[in-house]
Design a protein around this nucleic acid. Sequence first.
RNA 1: GGCGCCAUGGUGCAACGGCUAGCACGGCAGUCUUUCAAGCUGCAGAUCCGGGUUCGAUUCCCGGUGGCGCUACCA
Length: 495
Amino acid sequence: MAAEKQFAYDGLAMAQVRVRFAPSPTGYLHVGGARTALFNWLFARQQGGVFLLRIEDTDADRSRPELTEAVLEGLRWLELDWDEGPYHQSERLPLYRAVADRLRAGGHAYPCFCKPEELEQRRQAAEKTGKPWKYDGRCRALTEADIKARAGQPHALRFRVPEGGETSFDDVVYGQVSVSHDEIEDFVLLRSDALPTYHLGVVADDLDMRITHVIRGADHLSNTPKQILLYRALGETPPVFAHAPLILGPDRTRLSKRHGATSVTAYGEEGFLPEAFRNFLALLGWSPGEDTELMPTEELVRRFRLENVGRTNAVFDRSKLEWFNGEYLRTQPLARLLSYVEAELRRQGLWRDEWGPEASGRDWFLRAVEMLRPRVRLLADFSQWARAFFSDAFDYDPEAVKKFLRDDRLVELLPQVQEALAGLQEWTHDEIERAVRGVAERAGVKAALVINAARVGVTGQAVAPPLFTTMELLGQKTVVSRLQRLVNQLPALTR
RNA sequence: GGCGCCAUGGUGCAACGGCUAGCACGGCAGUCUUUCAAGCUGCAGAUCCGGGUUCGAUUCCCGGUGGCGCUACCA
């Protein structure tokens, strides 16, 4: 917090916090980006600050609008709303050129006429001799006359890194980080097509947008000194930096397609709740400092501290994410959960209007969801595992068949169960139980035998909510006809 | 290769230099039950290695090892 106070902007005693999420449009919002966005968002919301979005699309082939749209979609799914933007760097080119001019005027930048191919050659030559390559500064010493003479020739603009010494900064997460100037080459600011490179773009924009805190992935840690150098050369005060550790796949390498779902939107499609996802993501690299883990978003906002962000890379553990999701599925206010379930059923074409808010079957729908939710981990479970609750068109799970339908006695027993249930005058839990258990008793078999078999017949699954409650909910007609169906198919199923 | 950063059970996180290193996920076992992926109970499992500093290091320092990142006219 001390660090937060020492930077005042535009003469304000206490500047308003302004943070940004600045993805390059890759066509999707991946988990790492999502976590960065979340940290920025949490911090902004907590500080009453501004969270803005900036698209870093100075690279020509990244400026296709649909690539950006996919990133925005990910943010929307995560429900991370932004206050400004999205700004597009591709639309702010004059700013970068102006900043480049300032640098050039101050003697901090110089034109470089080396051709990329030549550089590549010199680099390879150097590497062959085992020497670490760094731009050799060939154009550094060009005089104004040299430059004038070559005017019109294609050239890049390079930053003049001070000779000797080092640059260090105080990262909120990583502490003091220093890099010797010997390690930093005269990097390119403007490419020969006059488009800015990343370093010039971020610094110019963060300055122009009055960003107070740069919260981003640790992959930018090593590059930060270059940016500090730029701030200094411009005579500007750098923002506060806070780098968050990287998120890795289960094999401890960078998260990629290999590791399954790479876009957060894909997690949405799989049936994860945004709030559960946020909770899980927040705990990847951050901890409230004690053992609490389940925290609704408001609490995350309240407790988030940049100084409690850790420094070690974290592995994305899907099974824990699933646990979080199950936890939220179970504890979510029912009304809210219903709309998620409705969306899921609609996606799968299982939705019926009679279950709608004011409709006649609403109460039934509510009971079904309430009954199902203790054993669900993904929204998709409602349409897959629990499909039989919402549709007559379901298959018998082969495992369930193997486990509960093998017994020969069922050929005799199931028709009896069906008959007993068909004859019931009152369709209540207790009456159903009496009827089913009665069949087992008269046959001298354990009740579990018929119960388990009937469960498969009625739900298609080995696992489902308690059978008699399930039957009561589904209704006599449905249950009886499903048992009839099972009786018919039994020989074929168990053959 | 050079530079930077990091290092607590399989995974995510805790532990003013001081109890038998805590919690959660996962695993295993038991229990409840009509099924369990729900509940409850229990068990196994970690301070990377080596030196220092200290009465005492998970914690501080140095070295090693390992991992990750950066090293582009990508971002």
